[in-house]
């Protein structure tokens, strides 16, 4: 019986591991978009939603993040990371520059890309012809 107690204690300790939310690395063969269920093929247009106490939710397209938040708004204290379209590095959504590029082939066709800075955006040939996109719309799932 003592061993069960020990085991449960270990469980309790293990489940309390925490800290500030850190982006998780995406496995480009096996990880699946939480909205469209597709395997995530490229880091460049990916995003992730880290809600407190929840498993990370990964997205293959900023459009999928938007659609997901439309049906299930992010809980209080969530962090959203988006991948820089040039480098694939994770950037907090608050710090990122989002651009909508009509006709750009992103995995689900939203044409949305993120960059760390406006300078990065201007360096990226993919964002040519694009227009700035309001992050608030992304978070609210497109609702006003």
């Amino acid at each position: 019986m003592r061993s069960i107690g020990m085991a449960l204690l270990t469980l309790a300790v293990a489940s309390c591991a925490g800290g500030p939310p850190q982006p998780v690395a995406i496995d480009l063969v096996n990880d699946v978009c939480a909205h469209c269920r597709m395997v995530i093929s490229t880091q460049k247009t990916a995003a992730q939603l880290l809600a407190p106490g929840e498993e990370p939710k990964l997205f293959d397209d900023l459009g999928c993040l938007r659609s997901f938040l439309e049906t299930a708004p992010a809980p209080e204290g969530s962090a959203v990371f988006v991948a820089d379209h040039l480098t694939g590095d994770w950037v907090r959504l608050e710090d990122a520059v989002i651009t909508e590029v009509p006709g750009l082939q992103t995995p689900m066709g939203s044409g949305l890309v993120a960059h760390r800075t406006t300078a990065d955006r201007d360096r990226d040939p993919a964002s040519r012809g694009g227009r700035p996109f309001d992050k608030a719309i992304l978070l609210s799932g497109g609702r006003p």
């Binding site: 590029v101 006709g103 750009l104 040939p125 993919a126 012809g129």
Partner: peptide, 12 residues
């Protein structure tokens, strides 16, 4: 030179 490489790939 119809297929101009200088064009951004984004526009396909």
């Amino acid at each position: 030179q119809v297929g101009d490489d200088a064009q951004p790939p984004s526009t396909g």
